[in-house]
Nucleic acid binder design. Structure first.
Length: 173
DNA sequence: ACCCCGATCGTA
DNA sequence: ACGATCGGGGTT
């Protein structure tokens, strides 16, 4: 895996239908402060889906989901865990992809399975909320041009929108 | 000012 | 199965 030659994902990658982005992010590498994680699990939240934070309209917290694609949306959940999302689709349309799991590049035996574990290990907090991952020197995603086999399922930890199979899980090789 | 609850996780 | 822990957002 030639990380050194890998290029960052451009805004156009994120500025398209959220389900496409959620699927395409599998196998890409999220980078934060020199730490590398191969994305293994994602979930899509967009439009008027009742499970989305933005379902009831734009608020101070959710305004990022309505903003330009390619920004980080980080929120605190259950008073103790942060969750990392990447905003997708055109400005004005609320959408984001939740990063639920990564495999560490340099510790292949460590699998951070769960959005809270991922942020805790990487040290991602509210500080990263709103970061432009196309321009940031600290937080971005590398395109290693790998296509993944994957399965889909309902999203985790929600009580509504369970009819939508918008969770994408890379199949172990 | 108050109340409810959540895109989770570790322990039991 | 359940408790920890706290901010967002709606209601009084």
């Amino acid at each position: 895996m030639n990380i050194a030659k890998a290029k960052r994902l451009k805004r156009s990658f994120f500025n398209r239908p959220t389900l496409q982005v959620a699927e395409a992010l599998l196998g890409k590498v999220v980078v934060f402060n020199g730490q590398y994680g191969i994305i293994t699990e994602t979930e899509a939240y967009f439009g008027d889906d009742p499970a989305s934070h933005a379902a009831k309209g734009e608020t101070p917290r959710t305004k990022l989901m309505f903003g330009e694609a390619g920004h980080a949306y980080v929120y605190l959940i259950y008073g103790m865990y942060y969750c990392l999302n990447f905003v997708t689709e055109k400005k004005g349309f609320p959408a984001a992809v939740l990063i639920r799991g990564v495999q560490l590049l340099d510790k292949t035996n460590v699998h951070l399975n769960g959005p809270g574990k991922l942020c805790r290990y990487f040290g991602i907090t509210k500080e990263q909320n709103g970061v432009d991952i196309i321009e940031s020197k600290d937080l971005y995603v590398l395109d290693i041009k790998k296509t993944c086999k994957f399965s889909v399922s309902p999203r985790i930890g929600i009580k509504v929108g369970l009819d939508k199979h918008w969770r994408f899980l890379a199949i172990e090789s």
